[in-house]
């Protein structure tokens, strides 16, 4: 069984471990070992999801009133369910 590998996080500079099972996973998938510790990785994933806050806004296609986790000034195109299924799905 391999040993755990220690690396220094490029984000918070703390040391972190990469356990043998994890190393095997990266080898199997031909991925590099991560450069950030698991807490910095977790924070990055958390930032991918919207905050748990609801805003009043309108559908960018049909102008219907919506309550969404995307604010009015969101850079994304936000559709109500109907418009979304007509266009994307």
């Amino acid at each position: 069984m391999k040993d755990s590998v220690t690396k220094k996080c490029q984000g918070c500079k703390k040391e972190f471990l990469i356990i043998p099972q994890e190393q095997s996973f990266y080898e199997k998938k031909k991925l590099p070992t991560p450069s950030n510790c698991h807490e910095c990785r977790r924070n990055r994933r958390k930032s991918l999801r919207n905050e748990r806050k609801l805003y009043q806004r309108k559908c960018d296609k049909c102008d219907k009133d919506l309550e969404s986790t995307y604010p009015k000034n969101s850079p994304y195109i936000i559709y109500c369910e109907e418009c979304y299924y007509n266009e994307v799905n």
Partner: peptide, 21 residues
Amino acid sequence: LKREIPRKFVHQFDTQNCTGD
């Protein structure tokens, strides 16, 4: 690409009269 393609205003499936995500 994400800014060009519309997305649904919330993530909901099999719901009736629900607000939230």
